[in-house]
Design a protein around this nucleic acid. Structure first.
Lengths: 349, 349
DNA sequence: CTGAAAGCGCTTACAG
DNA sequence: CTGAAAGCGCTTACAG
């Protein structure tokens, strides 16, 4: 890590090895560090410092390229100005969009966003949370965490607010998609399309993808079953395959499923674009056409939408979710168990 | 932003409002803060502190949930432990993959990664760099920056190392894809496929997407022309459309292009998956089938690869690029103008 | 083998 | 209208 520790030696450019402090500025402006500090952080109006002095200091800071040391400010103020998020991965448009909106909203509030990917692994989640707390994040958001409550507990011990996104927890307010009703609506759309195509319902609808243990998958399965019940259809356990998230897992699960069947299911409820990848690969490799089966995907990807307009998708409203998240950060009146559910939008119906 | 400033008041849980410091630990262990500090940060072996005392302190820190304040450590050590990256957006798999590998590699080195999206806007790039420098990042990586040299200059003034990724700059070492040869190889693959399909080259190949001003697009255009020249084909200016990155721009550009033509081009070199989105939408909306035109995309998306296996793609080797990036961070012997070019991998040929 | 002391660069209550 | 002083929580050279 040499470049890091010897950064200065690489750049002979600026004469001063040290960076400018308020003491330097005070010397230049012939005033005190206190005054410089007050002017620079805006508290000078309360202090009735003369406009003239303020201007002088501001100009000087500008021309000398002064940059306040946030570590020092954070230490003194006991506020880091940092907000943290843990995220499973960036490997789909849902999570990367979450990161992007999170960062934008944080910046809008003058906060610095730190995000760490924890690969749906509880140990990595804890470790990342520990680091974020060491950096004194002012708030920690657990997104899609496998063990959000432990993180909330760690935050609580440190006196730091925590929130859950995407997957709910019981020890902090949660903002998630309305998974059950979204899945129900998506399933109804699938059944409608089968009807419209005159397809035989007897070939069944397969639910595939996601983790059986996680809240969202369970809810989506319930929504799936509910929609079918509404249409007078029973659902067999064998047609529900929460085979985890990875594309490969979905591909393998589908392959195993098809070994016991002679025909493709009439339709599939695919529980993420990641699983979709595996499904599509299996179809292709088995010599099937995509349009032999009606597909609804609980998740959204714009390129998939463009390439395959027949695909029905439930797009989770990331922008709204992040707005709700920051509404809670701005005004933390919510009880720990609070659950906000945001309706996903159906695409391609 | 009330939750942030009043975080503690929300959580009556832990009795102590304040978080534990080395002073508290020193009191508990009946030793001095210096000793606690040395034990906690590992410098105690050099100091010949007794194993027994060290164990006692470590156990205590553990049981009391001590967490070192990184702001204080950073201030004192004059090293923040933070590494920054600016990124255009997270809106495709290339950039989100960069963020993910960057974060993973940073963490492996005990560094904290901060990523800011700057929307290909020089003003936002500068502003983000300013904030990162205020947080005393130890190194700043400009990814796909429209104005990397200004950022390098800002870093240089602050005595901070900077590096460029994806788009090169002249004031810091750069790691980019081998755009020219990658484009050349992709173009050759396109031409081969046209030949294999017995398609008429007279319908031409359209190059579409990207910014005419940016280095990578220029290089890719040159590679495109070079491949055609190698095959004895001339290239008309009208067949080169660097219409910027957004999907909508590509769609509009293609629409305009087609107003002067009666037939689709035989093939297209699409300069990003983002542009691809717009292209595909236009085709669909104009009643065309995707397979009426041979498409090569300089960029990669796994879902696109699954949905449309005929699509040829040049996959930029993100993992290798990030490895090279950190190799330079670890050992900063490179001259500012150093340019490392990583060959992209062709997919679907 | 261990501790007292100075200092990193800020902010803020207090005194004038 | 402005400044001196204390202190945020660490680290580290120095003294013993």
């Amino acid at each position: 890590m040499r470049l890091l520790s010897t950064a200065r030696s690489c750049h002979v450019a600026s004469d001063s090895a040290k960076r400018l402090t308020i003491y330097d500025l005070a010397r230049f402006a012939e005033t005190s560090p206190s005054t410089v500090s007050a002017v620079l952080n805006g508290s000078w109006k309360r202090r009735r410092i003369s406009q003239k002095l303020a201007d002088k200091i501001l100009t000087l800071a500008q021309s000398e390229g002064y940059s306040a040391n946030m570590q020092a400010r954070a230490l003194r103020r006991e506020r880091s100005g940092i907000i943290g998020m843990i995220l499973p991965l960036y490997d789909n448009r849902y999570f990367s969009s979450i990161a992007q909106h999170f960062e934008a909203q944080a910046r809008k509030r003058g906060l610095f966003a730190i995000v760490a990917c924890t690969n749906r692994d509880p140990a990595q989640e804890r470790e990342a949370a520990r680091m974020m707390l060491a950096y004194r994040v002012e708030c920690l958001v657990s997104t899609g965490a496998t063990d959000p409550d432990t993180i909330s507990l760690m935050c609580e011990e440190a006196g730091v607010a925590s929130l859950n996104l995407d997957l709910p927890g019981s020890k902090a307010p949660s903002i998630i998609s309305d998974n059950r009703d979204g899945a129900r609506r998506l399933t109804l759309a699938i059944l409608d399309r089968l009807d419209a195509n005159g397809a035989a319902h007897s070939d069944g609808v397969l639910f595939i993808g996601g983790r059986g243990e996680d809240h969202n998958t369970r809810e989506r399965i319930e929504g799936f079953i509910k929609a079918r019940t509404e249409r007078g259809l029973a659902t067999r356990d064998a047609d529900i395959l929460p085979c985890d998230y990875a594309a490969d897992k979905a591909q393998v699960a589908l392959e195993a499923y098809m070994r016991h069947r002679t025909r493709l299911p009439a339709a599939m409820f695919v529980n993420s674009t990641i699983a979709l990848e595996g499904i599509v690969r299996w179809l292709q490799q088995s010599g099937h056409q995509l349009d032999e089966v009606t597909v609804g995907c609980f998740d959204w990807d714009p390129l998939a939408a463009a390439l395959y307009p027949h695909l029905m998708m439930a797009r989770q409203s990331v922008e709204v979710m992040i707005e709700q998240l920051f509404a809670m950060i701005d005004d933390p009146a919510q009880a720990p168990g609070t659950l906000v559910e945001v309706a996903p939008e159906l695409i391609g119906i």
